[in-house]
Write a protein that binds this DNA or RNA. Structure first.
Lengths: 258, 258
DNA sequence: AGTCGCAACTCGTAAGGACGAGTGACGACA
DNA sequence: TGTCGTCACTCGTCCTTACGAGTTGCGACT
């Protein structure tokens, strides 16, 4: 029944009408939308037009469609998991915000070479050797999955016996190793977001229209020398990142690309 | 000509074939895909199927479609703008990473009340009065637009004459005011990402399948009392956030929802 | 030679039909 | 009583056809 106005493509008018019905409370979060057949009658348009409108709302992340059942208004809770990107030092051992994450499998260690993106961040030329350590974590409280990758230059590992023997050590342990070797550590971190690649959609169990939040942490040693690169990826609808900032005297911060 | 295999819906097979052709280098970034008509011939499917496949690649952010011309493989440069989320203090004045941003219009000041999301972050009950100051910035080097919102509790503004008179002061000036009033300032910041609302798509000039990166900074005074909330929103394909981390002794970090 | 309009290409919107596939409830049968 | 099959409903896929709208280049006319 609700009237549809003149301007613009039909399917956008229908999408806007449904969106308004949702925000006005006619279809509260979690509730099902009318079936396609009912929407056809209600707005007097063809099925492709209704489906086109629904596709638009899906791309906005406003609804979830379940085959055989209905379309449901998506609940938009705040991200349930707050990942604290801090580093704490206590009596020579380091702790990061992630303390109780499960590791789904043993870390997978592989060899890689520095690329256009990772190279400069680590102060390397293109084509230098690296260890790449991949982990898949799960936060036990929320079930959120987190992809973690560590890039450790071979040249750095070679300087520390324990690292060369066990490159898959936890990052916190690597911090401790570097610190005992005389490095005064600082970290810089950049945060990006993007749509997932198909394989990331699968491993992170991402719903429609859900971006990835991605962060790159670089561990700097003495003279701001980059030693270690860590990447974190998580579903943006479940995870957010938290930082603490303190006023500092002037200094430059290195930008990181990826 | 390329053969299409059995499994799964036709349009997904076509989408996968095109995706492979892109990643294999047959269609490098910036180059146009074959026209719909050509893809119909190439894969021996109907136009809706081709369009459905193209829609899938759009949703992945892999291609951009231009009406009347063609579909182009999207270039995926690293975000051109790095927003440094740091605070620097020098002789009583504060500086943040954003120094050369243009303000497109005068800040728009409005009154608001604390909500379910902003209230707790500011230590307020629901329904308390706030100033809301909205700004639209443009980074001159890259043309990137940034939405900035400041939430200043009336109760805080009332404690400082200059703030009550001019709630639209720059955040750095507010920091300085609070500091001279005896507060030792610290900040916590949370970062999220999500798909844009329709109006954000417009004001931030967002392409298809481009998320928003969003950060909430809370200024804490003495006894960790929350005084000020700032929100930043930008297109995730153009902007990334940068933080500096230093090892700290144990302490808890307040999570922020929005 | 310059300008303007049309033609031919592109993608966008819309309708209609047909069938496949997942879900849930009901009822018949064991 | 319990199991299982059918049926009616949902959304998913795929086709054909038609026309609208933006872009570009060619060619005719001035």
């Amino acid at each position: 029944m609700p009237g549809i106005e003149r301007p613009g493509p039909l399917y956008k008018q229908v999408a806007a009408a449904i969106r308004d019905a949702i925000t006005s409370g006619e279809f509260p979060p979690g509730s099902p939308l009318p079936s396609e057949t009912q929407l056809i009658k209600r707005y007097q348009v063809s099925r492709p037009t209704v489906r086109n409108a629904i596709a638009a709302l899906r791309a906005e992340g406003l609804i979830d469609v379940v085959h055989g059942k209905a379309s449901y208004v998506r609940r938009r809770p705040a991200p349930a998991l707050t990942i604290e990107r801090t580093v704490t030092r206590k009596a020579g051992t380091y702790t990061t915000g992630q303390t109780d994450w499960q590791e789904n499998e043993a870390p997978s260690v592989s060899r890689a070479t520095s690329t256009e993106t990772t190279g400069p961040a680590l102060g390397l030329d293109e084509g230098e050797d690296l260890f790449a350590i991949d982990r898949l974590h799960t936060d036990p409280a929320t079930g959120t999955r987190i992809l973690h990758r560590t890039l450790l230059p071979l040249a750095v590992a070679a300087d520390h016996n324990e690292l060369a023997e066990n490159p898959a050590a936890a990052p916190e342990q690597i911090y401790a190793l570097l610190a005992t070797a005389g490095h005064k550590l600082t970290w810089t971190e950049t945060v990006r977001a993007r749509m997932p690649l198909p394989d990331e959609r699968a491993t992170l169990e991402l719903p429609d229209a859900t971006p990835i939040i991605e962060t790159t942490r670089i561990t700097h040693g003495n003279d701001d020398q980059p030693l270690l690169l860590e990447e974190l990826r998580a579903a943006a609808d479940r995870a957010q990142l938290a930082y603490r900032i303190t006023a500092d005297s002037p200094r430059t911060l290195r930008a990181v690309r990826s």
